[in-house]
Amino acid sequence: MGQVIQFAIDVLSLGSLYALMALGLVIVYGILRLVNFAYGELIMVAGYTLYLLDGTALPWLAMAAVAIVMAMVFGVLTEYVAFRPVRMKSVTAVLITSFAFSTLLQHAALLFISPRSRLVPTPALFTRTVEIAGVVVPLRNLLTIAAAVAVLALFTFLLRRTVLGIALRAAASQFRMTRMLGVPANLVITSAFAISGLLAGVVSLFWLGRIGSVVPGIGLEPLLVAFIATVIGGMRSLPGAVVGGYLLALIDVSLNTALPQALLQFRDAFTFSLVIVLLLWRPQGLIRGPATGQRT
């Protein structure tokens, strides 16, 4: 019984982070059909914001809010620098600019801050543990799950109940028609990037809370995670991204307990091979996205 609870909480807390990460990638991909390689760097930006604010008199929650806002600002900046100028050109061009922007942000952090890791402030709450049915669980894991539920609820409300949200969903299937109803293309795209930044910002708080520090290359792992989760769930489906995130966590946690140590180090090779196979077998992912669409 204890093991089951332990396993479930591990999967749910890890899956919450994965799901939010994947969602942030898909919201942009769904509308623009473009992969944002600079997405992981938003976590880095939030991390360094926390680091720079450490030592100020601000309470942790205020620092966290500033970090999330910075992630959103950089999300929108990504759009202005790497996407907008080349959006109309070619798919390859945008992929390269976002890859270049990712490198740019990483090396800017190297240059202006430090190649070495920097501690980020974490609230005292994160280090506490609670006991559930005899199992000692870090409170941080429960907070992660709660935060994910709250963000997902907010996200669903936004997409279902607000005009902007409806426009975002519409743009994901018929971008041109959405524009012909008077919805400005730039509004839709900028909102998507801002939401993407918001999700990355929330993830960063818990992701960094687990590690406790930030380095310039921190964005790679969350980016890879988001890739796998979106491919599993369906590149263009928002619910698919969430399902993919939790599924990936299930796979990861299961492999961690099931695989012998010698094979465990190849876990990434296994999961990425799974990605390749899945893309070949079902390019749409497990959950299909909206009907068709064009990007202009």
Partner: peptide
């Protein structure tokens, strides 16, 4: 070009 996944009202 109806938005197939959206409701009529949306």
């Amino acid at each position: 070009d109806v938005f197939a996944d959206l409701t009529v009202l949306e």
